[in-house]
């Protein structure tokens, strides 16, 4: 169950980390869902045509970053409303992917290719005797390790580099940055592109883990990634924990499906229900915390 949870966690975590970077720069990127979908589609198409997972994932990252760049140009340079633009990106991905898929492969539906390489797993060459520890540490696909590594990297970038400091001050105090002679827009743009990198890679993992592209393969995971940012108190470690909690909840609900016979369609609403509960609880807690702070 934990193995499953970690596998489900990785794409959400990586997309969430990307979203965290743009959130810290003061841009709530609600287009994560569309960026992930783009990453998933690109990853499958490129992996199938080149036979290389690495190339597929790289292409997905580039596609996510490119679409995020479009997002940043429209929202920052054209000055469009950032939420409406983010929705536009989601809609564009939803509309353009089936269109492109149909032009290339003659179908808007499932893309399954023969000889699709599978995501490698990290297995030990020797027997490791402690079962629970073994299950927790080994046997996952490489995306899981990558996601943990990226969590540490994001933490380092945000808190241990000058770039990270400036990025965070764009979100908290853009005027101070401007007074120092720097342009906040520049950092916002980089942060948005980085969120595209994260979401693209997250989407790639999602699809490569299955080895197929399904329509709406993300099914709300981009939104969950968005909420892990809030739930994780806008910190990389927090995003890691929040993403794991969601992944575990999903694993449990999938297991429960066999027992209580929940209809499949109802299960589709679960990520959204959990997300909205998490958001409301988070804001209620923060709200009462702020009030206490104020009265003190």
């Amino acid at each position: 169950m934990i193995v499953n949870s970690l596998g489900i966690m990785a794409p959400i975590l990586i997309a969430g980390l990307g979203g965290l970077l743009s959130e810290r720069a003061g841009v709530l990127n609600i287009s994560l869902e569309g960026l992930m979908l783009t990453g998933a589609f690109t990853a499958i198409v490129v992996t199938a045509s080149t036979g290389s997972i690495l190339l597929g994932a790289t292409a997905a990252v580039i596609a996510g970053a490119a679409l995020a760049l479009v997002f940043s140009i429209i929202s920052i340079d054209l000055g469009s409303n950032i939420f409406i633009t983010g929705l536009g990106i989601n809609l564009l991905a939803q509309g353009a992917i089936p269109f492109i898929s149909n032009q290339m492969f003659g179908t808007k539906g499932v893309l399954r290719f023969a000889e699709m390489p599978i995501l490698p797993r990290l297995e030990l060459a020797f027997e490791f005797r402690v079962p629970l520890v073994h299950d927790f540490l080994f046997g996952h696909h490489i995306g899981v390790y990558l996601s943990i590594l990226l969590t540490a990297l994001t933490w380092f970038l945000l808190y241990r580099t000058g770039f990270g400091l400036r990025l965070r001050s764009v979100g908290s105090n853009p005027e101070a940055l401007r007074l120092r002679g720097l342009t906040p827009e520049h950092y916002k743009r980089i942060a948005i592109v980085l969120s595209g990198v994260g979401a693209g890679l997250g989407g790639a993992l999602l699809a490569l883990r299955l080895g197929v592209y399904l329509p709406n393969i993300t099914s709300g995971r981009g939104w969950i990634a968005l909420v892990t940012i809030y739930l994780g108190y806008r910190r990389p470690g927090g995003v890691l924990i929040a993403a794991f909690v969601f992944a575990f909840a999903e694993t449990v609900s999938m297991a429960a499906q066999g027992v209580v016979a929940l209809p499949n369609t109802v299960l589709l609403s679960l990520p959204y229900v959990l997300t909205v509960i998490a958001m409301v609880v988070y804001s209620a807690v923060r709200h009462s915390g702020a009030r206490r702070h104020y009265s003190r």
Binding site: I74, D77, L78, G79, S80, N81, I84, T85, L87, G88, I89, L91, L92, Q94, G95, A96, P98, F99, N102, K108
Partner: peptide, 22 residues
Amino acid sequence: EFTFELATIIQAVVFFIITAQH
């Protein structure tokens, strides 16, 4: 066969441009 996709993409384009201040 692209009514739905067409409508979605048109909405996206409208969203991109319509609130552009610059």
